[in-house]
Simulated assay, not measured.
Amino acid sequence: MRHLVLADIHGNWPALEAVLQAAPPFDRVLFLGDAVGYYPDGDRVLDWLLEVGAECVLGNHDAWLLALEALPQEGAVLEILAWQRARLSRRHLEFLASWPWQKEAAGALLVHGSPCDPFEYLDELEAARRAFACTEARLAFHGHTHLAGAFLQLPGPRPWVRYGRFLEGGELRLPPAVRALANPGSVGQPRDGVPGAAFALWEGERLEFFRVAYDLGRVARRLEEEGFPLWLYTRLTLGE
């Protein structure tokens, strides 16, 4: 079975459309959190996740949107989330609220941040070592950092952990004895210096990373239509 692995869409519908146009055929969608936040079309993203029956886990922006009443209404991120929440239906909110912090799907662990803490960033080797110790899963998918890559743990008396980046795509083969923490990169807002929508396809021992270009002007026009700050567009042009 071939799985489309997505993370951190953040309401960027043009980016998700580009992924769906570029992706090879797939059987199932695994989504690693942060459907909402930053860009205006969180409702369209949630509609699509519902339509395809995606396996989803909660991201920090998803959780913040659900808990807005308990958070101070300050800062652009929370203002955007409040704007989005006012436009979501009860069905959308119930769907978001049904997502766990982590879950097993198709033999892999899905989590937004780390198996240790859904808000933790897996962006350096020591954090990855802790994460491997927090789960027995051979393969875990995570998002949150918006960086496409994978930490690999090789067996031995003192397991060795190394990291590989997949800035513009590439393929990873997982031998039976190797464990992996893999991040497909962000669909909606990459932060590794390479513009475009990032995603991955997983089938058996093979994990393939992709980066697809799309018309960023469509995002700029949506931001202008809804009065969102244009620095959100600038970030996309820089991949940060």
Rank of each mutant, 00 (worst) to 15 (best):
M1K: 01
R2H: 07
L4V: 03
V5L: 08
A7D: 08
N12P: 14
W13V: 00
W13A: 01
P14Y: 02
A15C: 11
E17V: 13
E17S: 13
V19M: 06
Q21L: 14
P24D: 07
P25I: 00
V29A: 07
L30S: 09
L30F: 07
D34N: 12
D34V: 12
A35M: 11
A35W: 03
Y38W: 06
Y38G: 00
Y39R: 01
P40V: 03
P40I: 03
V45A: 01
V45T: 04
L46D: 02
W48Y: 14
W48Q: 02
W48N: 01
L49E: 02
L49G: 04
E51P: 05
V52N: 01
G53A: 13
A54R: 07
E55Q: 12
V57P: 00
L58V: 09
L58P: 00
G59H: 09
N60F: 12
H61P: 02
D62Y: 07
A63S: 07
A63R: 13
W64T: 11
L65T: 06
L68R: 08
E69R: 15
G75W: 07
V77Q: 13
E79T: 12
A82L: 15
A82R: 15
Q84I: 08
Q84L: 11
A86N: 14
R87V: 10
R87P: 02
L88I: 12
R90V: 13
L93Y: 15
L96W: 12
A97Q: 14
Q102F: 13
K103E: 09
K103V: 08
E104H: 10
A105E: 05
G107L: 08
A108P: 01
L109F: 09
L110N: 03
G113P: 15
D117N: 13
D117V: 03
Y121I: 12
L122H: 08
L122A: 10
A127I: 04
A128Y: 10
R129T: 05
F132Y: 08
A133R: 11
C134E: 02
T135H: 03
A137F: 06
A137I: 05
R138S: 05
R138C: 06
R138K: 10
L139A: 11
F141W: 09
H146Y: 11
L147D: 09
A150F: 10
Q153S: 15
L154M: 14
P155D: 13
G156L: 11
R158D: 07
W160S: 15
Y163S: 13
G169F: 06
G169R: 12
G170Y: 01
E171I: 04
R173W: 14
R173L: 13
L174K: 04
P176L: 15
P176E: 15
A177Q: 15
L181Y: 10
N183D: 09
N183T: 07
N183P: 00
P184V: 10
G185S: 14
S186T: 11
P190I: 10
R191H: 13
R191N: 14
D192G: 11
D192L: 05
D192C: 05
G193R: 12
G193D: 12
V194F: 08
P195S: 02
A197Y: 04
A197R: 05
A200P: 00
E203F: 02
L207A: 01
L207N: 01
F210C: 03
R211W: 03
V212F: 07
A213K: 11
Y214A: 00
L216C: 04
R218S: 12
R222S: 03
E225P: 00
E226D: 05
F228Y: 15
P229E: 00
T234L: 10
R235N: 13
L236V: 10
E240C: 08
E240F: 14
